[in-house]
Design a binder for these strands. Structure first.
Ligand code: MN
Ligand code: MN
Ligand code: ZN
Ligand code: ZN
Lengths: 143, 143
DNA sequence: CAAATTATTGCAAAAATTCGCAATAGAGAA
DNA sequence: TTCTCTATTGCGAATTTTTGCAATAATTTG
């Protein structure tokens, strides 16, 4: 994680923003967390390290990183979750019957991205896509 | 719209639920609205017709229809919006620079759906997909 | 039709998220 | 370093969304 700090710092500062201790801590926490954390979970973690850090700051910081596209914000199973993105672009298949979440490399979405670019000139952000549906297991058990 | 009432009613009652006046009104309102309405907009409309109808009921009703897959819930430009779905499955390309929203027929996503089904046995709900990115216009003006 | 059952609603309180604003602190200039 | 400028924070209030629960209404049973 520490090898990211410089990249992030420069990326942020290059746009006239600042990598404050609060933002750094949120970033570190996101690194440390496995994946897909809610704002509340992130606040709890962060709060233990820096008790003065306000909840509003967590929300603003997460929104800030989302706009910089350092993290992805998604709705998975009715919950808004955040995740560091960039190293391994991926997408999720979320089953609406058993709530199972599969994670797959985003390489298979390249065709779709190419098509959108060629056909509509649209450069799609497909770093982190969430697709709802019914998984193989549930399809088998309820035909 | 009225020709839908029977379909909806039966679809709902078949699962042991009820098509109450409140739900009917929300459904009618969604029909009447062009597209992509927020919970607040829907409540305002509905409230004019049935002042006693509570806001919590609107939220619960929308969630109810989402679970029945009669309406789609999406995040477009930072707002949670609802739309009747079914007649014209479609997807949206949302530009993160100019906020422009394009609407396209979902037929082009069929390849992706097929691939997910064949390769992962996953039956994807691609009735209403929202894809973020940068539109052709913005790409042209900022290369 | 009356009784029983259960889904649904309204209400108020709780929880989650956003917002305005004065105070703070980081960055650059002198 | 000191001064200036402005991005960012903490705080409290406002707004949005969810939840528990008793009252209501729709449906079924007898
Ligand atoms: Mn993910
Ligand atoms: Mn739409
Ligand atoms: Zn499943
Ligand atoms: Zn654009």
């Amino acid at each position: 994680m520490s090898h990211h700090h410089l990249d992030f710092s420069q990326l942020i500062r290059a746009q006239g923003y600042r990598l404050t201790p609060q933002r750094q801590l949120v970033l570190d926490t996101l690194c440390a967390m496995s994946s897909h954390a809610t704002a509340c979970e992130i606040y709890d973690q962060v709060s233990a390290q820096m008790p003065a850090l306000n909840q509003a700051t967590v929300y603003r910081t997460l929104e800030f990183f989302v706009e910089l596209r350092l993290i992805a914000k998604s709705d998975i199973g009715g919950q808004t979750v955040y995740e560091l993105v960039g190293e391994q672009p991926h997408y999720h298949l979320v089953c609406r019957q058993c709530s199972h979440v599969a994670e797959l490399a985003a390489t298979q979405l390249a065709d779709l991205a190419d098509w959108l670019l060629v056909e509509h000139g649209f450069q799609a952000d497909l770093d982190h896509v969430v697709i709802q549906g019914v998984c193989a297991g549930c399809r088998a058990s309820s035909p």
